[in-house]
Simulated scan of single mutants.
Amino acid sequence: MATPTGELDQDQVREFLERVAGDGAAAFAALATSIGARLGLYEAMAGAGALTSGQLAERTGLAERYVREWLAVQVAGEYVRRDPAADTYVLPDEHAAVLADPSAPTYFVGAFRMLKPLYAVEDDLMRAYRTGEGVGWDEHGPELYEGTADFFRPGYVGMLTQEWLPALDGVVAKLERGARVADVGCGFGVSTLLMAQAFPNSRFHGFDYHAHSIGAARREAEKQGLRDRVMFDVAPAAEFPGSGYDLVAFFDCLHDLGDPGAAFRRSRETLAEDGTVLAVEPNASAEPSELVGPIGRAFAATSATLCLPGAVAQHGPQALGNHPGEAALREIAAEAGLRSWRLATESMTNRVYEIRP
């Protein structure tokens, strides 16, 4: 380490130390958040009013001493409120919307469920940083795939059919009449099945190279009674089968590909004459200084530990990370023959692009 050349501003050192200590505390507390979600503690507290640690332990079938210690973490993080006089704890309804209700668009627990599998490959990531190799999606544990689905589901439930698809020119009318849709990089099929529920006259085909995810998607389609018009198959983004698609969609996955240009070319080849390509991508700047803040920081962190290593592992011509910027994506699309590009809509977390030949 280089020796400082001047006298340090100790106030700035203390200020930065407090910030880093806060990050460390949040990292430790994140494990308790994940445990609480997986054990149903937040759900048990939601709408229950004031509970003692014993009552919460009884509701969940857990050991009271551990529940009491877990509650201390929640109080310290201001997730849960405590009445010392009554020795009770309350999860406010507003907090329950974030921690306890998977159907709420504000549910954020999926992010915490992704931490265990990401930390588990820390040594692999260090090796990748030294060698320039990748860490593939299929090298992670199953908790990552489940956590990713949980992470994206609330946003898709709240935005996909209500805002994103209506922002595309003429697409909803086609879906209502009956259209053919390819959902590329579909993962557990959350986006595919939401569209199928909303548009019963259309047929949907989800593709992903990851067999475990396709298996989970098929089971969910069966559970929802949608197998008659929703199919899931293992296929890479550059080689998915079919033709005459009215819509080819990429939900939060284009940047994960080692060759997004090949995926765009295959999309153009399979589109119907007046078909549309939809790309939903993180709303994150390519300029690092513009990523300051919780959302931008989360994107940057997952890019460095998940998205970029996964793309590198595919040995393609590009490894974009999740914040390449609109200009880079637009250029790749144009080179693939998709030259009509429009920002259809955006939110704090996503940008939705309508793309055509």
Rank of each mutant, 00 (worst) to 15 (best):
A27I: 12
T161Q: 03
Q224L: 15
T131E: 10
R268P: 04
A334W: 06
N283D: 12
F108D: 02
E69Q: 09
D228V: 13
V277H: 00
P200L: 10
L308H: 09
V230Y: 00
P324V: 12
E64N: 03
L41T: 02
P282G: 10
R268D: 11
A30H: 05
L247M: 11
E94F: 04
L226D: 04
D23W: 14
T345G: 01
V181N: 02
G141V: 07
A272V: 06
I214R: 11
G22T: 01
G134N: 10
V184S: 14
A284H: 11
R218P: 01
G261Q: 15
L254R: 09
G77H: 10
A111H: 11
V98F: 10
A30F: 04
P282V: 01
R130D: 15
R38W: 07
A284K: 08
D274E: 09
S340A: 13
V312R: 08
A196E: 01
Y66H: 04
F188E: 09
W164A: 03
P309W: 06
E78P: 01
E7A: 12
L39M: 14
M126A: 15
G134P: 09
A120H: 12
G178Q: 02
P105C: 05
V157F: 09
F251W: 02
V280G: 07
T305R: 00
A336G: 09
A235Y: 12
L343M: 02
A327Q: 14
A173N: 03
A25D: 06
F112G: 00
E331N: 10
R113Q: 12
L115S: 07
H255G: 12
A104R: 06
E69V: 05
S285L: 04
L91Q: 04
A30T: 08
M1G: 15
Y129W: 15
V13G: 04
L62S: 07
Q12Y: 02
G244M: 09
V98W: 10
Y119W: 05
G261D: 10
A263V: 08
L257P: 06
R153H: 00
A221K: 03
V172R: 04
Q224E: 08
Y245P: 15
A311V: 03
A167E: 08
G22F: 02
G47W: 13
Y119S: 11
T106D: 15
D83T: 07
F188C: 08
L291A: 02
A128R: 03
A63H: 14
L308K: 06
R266I: 05
G36V: 04
P324C: 06
E15G: 00
R297D: 00
P241M: 05
A30E: 01
Q197D: 08
Q55A: 08
G310Q: 12
A319K: 11
T302F: 09
G49P: 10
V90S: 13
